[in-house]
Design a binder for these strands. Sequence first.
DNA 1: CGTGTGCATGTCGAATCCGACATACTGGAC
DNA 2: GTCCAGTATGTCGGATTCGACATGCACACG
Lengths: 107, 107
Amino acid sequence: MDPNKQARLDAAGWKVGDAADFLSLSPAEAELVEIRHRLAQAVRTVRAEHHVSQAQLARILGSSQSRVAKIEAGDRSVSLDLMVRALLGLGLGHQELAGWLGAKSAA
Amino acid sequence: MDPNKQARLDAAGWKVGDAADFLSLSPAEAELVEIRHRLAQAVRTVRAEHHVSQAQLARILGSSQSRVAKIEAGDRSVSLDLMVRALLGLGLGHQELAGWLGAKSAA
DNA sequence: CGTGTGCATGTCGAATCCGACATACTGGAC
DNA sequence: GTCCAGTATGTCGGATTCGACATGCACACG
């Protein structure tokens, strides 16, 4: 979070934590959320780099545009399986996948 | 594959390919198989290192021993989600997960 | 020998996730 | 302004995956 914003919120009497604090997630649950978010970002980024529309990716996956939109939105109805299949469909291998999982966040 | 073994099979008139050749999988399908195999291995290895039984891990996950066995066997009825949740339940974070995904295989 | 612990496999009803479709919102071209 | 491609959101019936349980096998200990 932007330190300036945090300072302002502090001054206003707000407690500042992350989503895990707020929802009281276990460490494992928080990690799963992080992973889902990273993969969702990866799909959106890689797809854009390849100049592929959601509809086109959907065809590659044998799915529909709406589901691709949900993948990138991190919708609750989307499993890790589908996210990973989307990335593989975009041509990534397991090594590159590991890169998206493990790389430091752009913050 | 062990080069010696391949040489022996060659001598016997066998064509030697990998599972993807045999089943004519697309690259993406082959990658998914690879990923599932790596995660299954990771669960078995990390669990053993922590001296945790399948039944104990099952309790951590809120699941049953039989499902943990299927996870480690790479059973078709097990999703990537469940495999990842198992690893997170064993205390791994997304970085370590990426390590298991991306590390070079022991061959 | 019997007993206990750990792991594997098959099957079930219930829960989740899927593709598909309808629909709505956006931003750029004309 | 009207279009249109791209994206987002909600819902549905059917497919997949879930936890649970039963059961079998192997191995160690007594």
